[in-house]
Design a protein around this nucleic acid. Structure first.
Lengths: 108, 108
DNA sequence: AATTTGCGTAACTCACAAGTTACATATACA
DNA sequence: TGTATATGTAACTTGTGAGTTACGCAAATT
């Protein structure tokens, strides 16, 4: 079997996968229903779905022969956590700037 | 000239570039100072720097023959904006769940 | 029972990002 | 002035992700 085990950063690096996520943010969809929105073949979309699933961006509910895809929060949380670290960085920077300004004010 | 014009998603998809950002979150550094932390060659790091710069993740201050790299917020903001859309999605979902629970409570 | 539909997977091609080495250039230093 | 240092870039190789087609299988339909 192929790998299809990309980390969350690699997963969202692909424009097609981001569009899939966007479509799923509007509605739950099956693989074919998703594939209709793209120029690429259905198997290609199917692979993307697998990647998104493995990285925790979607969950899949099998209903008969159809596979219904729904957004799942796990993958997004990993990204949030990564960004939060740098949010803190910018926050700290502002704090330091504020402290600096206070110092200047007090000196006057 | 080569392209080196990746979008913010592709930029953070590379582990080396994420580590560079992490190093820069501790301290401002020159290219060589950054390269010491990696197994790859200095030109490779230099390319990553260019990519990070073009995507708005760092700013560069030339001091003599040295290039001092500093984190810049622009690149991160693009990612925040993308994630914020889905944050809203989860928020809405919770709202709907809350409304549903209220309905059930009222019926009892 | 036969056919259609919805999907997964294997095998393959291809583009390109990411690395390398070699070389060029500008600044600092002796 | 000559040499060492800090860096950028051109040219090349290579791994691999993303696409394709062909095929198989199970569920639905007739």
């Amino acid at each position: 079997m192929e790998q299809h085990r990309l980390d969350v950063f690699q997963v969202i690096a692909d424009p097609s996968r981001r569009q899939i996520l966007h479509l799923l943010s509007k509605d739950s969809r099956t693989i074919n229903s998703l594939a209709e929105n793209f120029d690429m073949s259905r198997p290609a979309v199917s692979k993307h779905i697998k990647v998104l699933y493995n990285a925790g961006f979607i969950s899949i509910q099998d209903i008969g022969r159809e596979r219904h895809c729904v957004l799942k929060q796990d993958g997004f949380k990993e990204l949030q956590a990564w960004l939060a670290y740098y949010d803190k960085f910018w926050g700290d920077k502002l704090d330091k700037l504020g402290a600096l300004m206070n110092d200047k004010m007090n000196k006057k």
